[in-house]
Write a protein that binds this DNA or RNA. Sequence first.
DNA 1: CTGTTAGCGCATTCAG
DNA 2: CTGAATGCGCTAACAG
Lengths: 333, 333
Amino acid sequence: MNIKEVAKRARLSTATVSRTINGSDKVSPKTALRVQRAIEALNYYPNTNARALGSGRSRLYGLIISDITNPFFPELVKGFDDVAIQHGQEVIIANTDYDAKRMEICVLRMLGRKVDGVAIMTSEMDAHLVHRLKSKNIPMVFLDTGTPGPGISNIKIDYGAGVDQAIRHLVSLGHKNIAFISGPMHLASAKARYDAFFESLKRNGIKPNPKLIEQGDHHIDGGGMAMERLLQQPLRPTAVLASNDLTAIGAIGALHEHKIRIPAEMSVIGFDDIHMSAFAHPPLTTVRLSRTEIATRAFHALYAALQDPAAIGAQYTVHPELIIRKSTSAPAR
Amino acid sequence: MNIKEVAKRARLSTATVSRTINGSDKVSPKTALRVQRAIEALNYYPNTNARALGSGRSRLYGLIISDITNPFFPELVKGFDDVAIQHGQEVIIANTDYDAKRMEICVLRMLGRKVDGVAIMTSEMDAHLVHRLKSKNIPMVFLDTGTPGPGISNIKIDYGAGVDQAIRHLVSLGHKNIAFISGPMHLASAKARYDAFFESLKRNGIKPNPKLIEQGDHHIDGGGMAMERLLQQPLRPTAVLASNDLTAIGAIGALHEHKIRIPAEMSVIGFDDIHMSAFAHPPLTTVRLSRTEIATRAFHALYAALQDPAAIGAQYTVHPELIIRKSTSAPAR
DNA sequence: CTGTTAGCGCATTCAG
DNA sequence: CTGAATGCGCTAACAG
């Protein structure tokens, strides 16, 4: 079953069939209809590999993430996939697992499949791999770690504004001793949040207290353990901001263990707004980072580059939004 | 950069280059080495599309899941992807989102890409789509919903044994009034767990009480709401088995709201053992369904069919395992 | 608007 | 063990 059969059935040339399949406007509506009918009658669908080989375009986009097991990513994947499907494109996902060798395999595969673009949503991206992609003129879009240039876009996250909303919310509630549980500092996104915390504190007239900073690992247990350490401080904070929601959820768990009431005795704020945060106990106040927005912008950055290869990469900014739920309140006096 | 260049560089024919790339044994070690060197010198990697077109085999496997946002699936995806990479194969993921039209698009794409096999991990699979795959002789493997046959394997989950371990654990602890929160009954997996619950109860000499059965939705909130309903019963159960971990976590949340102590006043058991269950409060006792095992078996079923196309589909059974943590104990007297 | 033709890059006969 | 030639299914000029 191939394009020839369809052409034969419709009594047309393969070129015309190909044209109508690709929505060329140089086909009369009547012949297009004839083609459609033949396609349906024969249950035909084109061979993607041959298509890519012939045209040089694969209609395939690569999405590189570091850990699909982290709830932040599936939502991102879903968003990206959704938009891609809407545009008749496909996506191939690569899970690097924070492993350099695996990352290389992933990139090589994408190169081999002639992807039309790749979205790099992990900060641990080897420079030489990026270079390799660039040398093949494959459009790229980075999440917060790229430098816009020819064919390279970047989606910037305004961590400063996001963290600032959280801190202002806490300050307006009357909090002064605000702790922070960071992520692993070798991750660019964790570092950015960490820095934003300090700046926001200063901006709000609060002197950062190093004893109120603990490091987590962006997972539940790291958050719990960091909270434990925080509780051993002589000066107990009245509020804690976590670098991501998983960390906050872990912290909440530790607080429950110690029978510390939330938010009465301790306010907790997360970052990301993953789905389950709304179902935490109490429902978590957090700074939402819209995965849908990130995914949509990423796809469009790539798709636009495809339409106009000369287009220079753009820089987008996504603004986080504070979602106030039940884990924050004025401190008990 | 293509195979010709490599051939030229190595002063060999493209056929020989192709052979060594594909690990043919009809190439002398010396010439193979020459090819290797040329490949490295030129930074060559084969064009996957051309490869698939020429050989008819794509080295690509399809994985169909219903909702990547459900924590059960990312772990499955990761497992499948890991094994595939180990075997030098690629995987393309399709997220059907419980939507029939989208499912059709996904299958058509896989067909178009000439996948070497597809793993169907969702129960809502259209019969005509399965038929279409079958007519193209594409090996398939189902998760608990397939009938083994030529090129079709099935991975059976012994829900009966899994649920039975949970019930026996509860019974041995002294529980008699055991509630069950089911999943959405239109899902085959939810139905299977539901049925297993009844059978296990009988097997353990307990008469099922319809008032102690509530329906959830396999999400956190559904579990919470179902638990609320259960608590309004005049006869309060001393233990509850949830159809999956998310449901159990929701139930735990509802119990906390009511200040009901777990496990002293209510034991809770989940099903699946998703990663976060170990970090619930208290850590959830649950029936582990190894995603790694499912994924590995699924991949191998497909991969084996590829090696020997005449191989008849096999049936595998994966046995769940009770993981006892802190959410279960003897009932308070 | 439609048909003819020549590759795309590789795997695979078939010779040697 | 190696090379030359053919075709996979489709798209993209180029004609008409």
